[in-house]
């Protein structure tokens, strides 16, 4: 009896051991053959990235960005919007490189055609996607440049930094959540959203309109459209405002946030964000002195 058991035991140990051995050799050979040599620094860099895989850098995700950084051996030209400066500094420290300053950016909606200021003339019905509405017609208000209000940008935002204000029919960008990944810019079929410098204390001045039609035509559809009158261009001392195709544009690199242009705009198309409220009286006097 014992002998039989012994025999069985030995047989199974030997055969299983042999199978295991062969399998181990095969595994080893396969592992050798298909070995992928990877720079361990990629993992280090990837860990320091935000891990949102937002695609804001223009690459497929954080892993791809990490690979690109390590391959380039520098941080030049690398832009990680959600990680921002902090992440770049961390990576530079870990890699022993120098890191350049990154200007913080933010998404800005350049349309103020709310239901009130640009009343709808027709009603849109169908798939709630701007991509389709854009191919169908100029928009409920008739402005071929204005926001369609179907929320493709809101759906594209991976950071919950946008929501649709159903009262105005326009999307709202939340300053504290926006990481400037640019997903909304790509999603908007009309290129209404622009990446602009976040500005000192989050202060920004911009023309909230991209309508390039003649003033009268634009004004007919929307009370707050830029009519290309050029008053702001004259007002600006820093040469930051340019006028092209009946549309003013403020260059955020040149703008000093002096707040001179918003009051002169006859249609209130120039918006200023996060400034302290103006004192109306003082403002007037200042204007007079300068004029």
């Amino acid at each position: 009896m014992n002998e039989v058991i012994n025999e069985i035991t030995i047989l199974s140990v030997v055969s299983l051991g042999a199978i295991g051995g062969v399998a181990a050799i095969i595994l080893y050979l396969v592992a050798q053959k298909f070995k992928v040599i990877e720079d361990p620094r990629i993992d280090t860099v990837e860990e320091l990235l935000p891990g949102a895989n937002c695609g804001g850098c223009g690459l497929a995700g954080c892993r791809a960005l990490a690979e690109a950084i390590v391959r380039a051996e520098s941080l030049e030209g690398i832009n990680c919007p959600p990680g921002g400066n902090a992440a770049m500094q961390d990576i530079a420290k870990a890699m022993g490189w120098e890191a350049g300053e990154q200007t913080p950016m933010i998404a800005v909606l350049r349309c103020s055609g709310s239901r009130e200021s640009a009343p709808p003339k027709v009603r849109y019905e169908g798939a709630m996607t701007c991509a389709f509405a854009h191919s169908l017609f100029s928009g409920e208000a008739g402005c071929p440049y204005g926001c369609l209000g179907c929320g493709d940008c809101v759906r594209a935002c991976a950071f919950d930094a946008m929501y649709m204000d159903h009262k105005t029919g326009l999307p709202v960008i939340l300053d504290d959540k926006c990481v400037a990944c640019g997903a909304c810019v790509k999603a908007c079929p009309r290129d209404i959203i622009e990446m602009r410098k976040k500005g000192k204390k989050d202060r920004r001045i911009f023309v909230s309109c991209i309508n390039m039609e003649k003033g009268g035509v634009a004004r007919k559809n929307c009370k707050v459209a830029c009519i290309g009158c050029g008053k702001c261009v004259k007002e600006c001392k820093f040469d930051a405002i340019s006028l092209e195709n009946f549309l003013a544009y403020i260059d955020y690199e040149k703008c000093t946030l002096c707040r001179k242009c918003p009051p002169v705009c006859p249609t209130n198309a120039i918006h200023e964000l996060n400034f302290p409220p103006r004192k109306p009286k003082v403002e007037k006097e200042e204007n007079k002195v300068e004029a």
């Binding site: 027709v122 009603r123 849109y124 019905e125 169908g126 798939a127 389709f132 169908l136 409920e140």
Partner: peptide, 8 residues
């Protein structure tokens, strides 16, 4: 009443 616009 506003006219409706939709795709075919």
């Amino acid at each position: 009443r506003l006219l409706t616009v939709s795709g075919s």
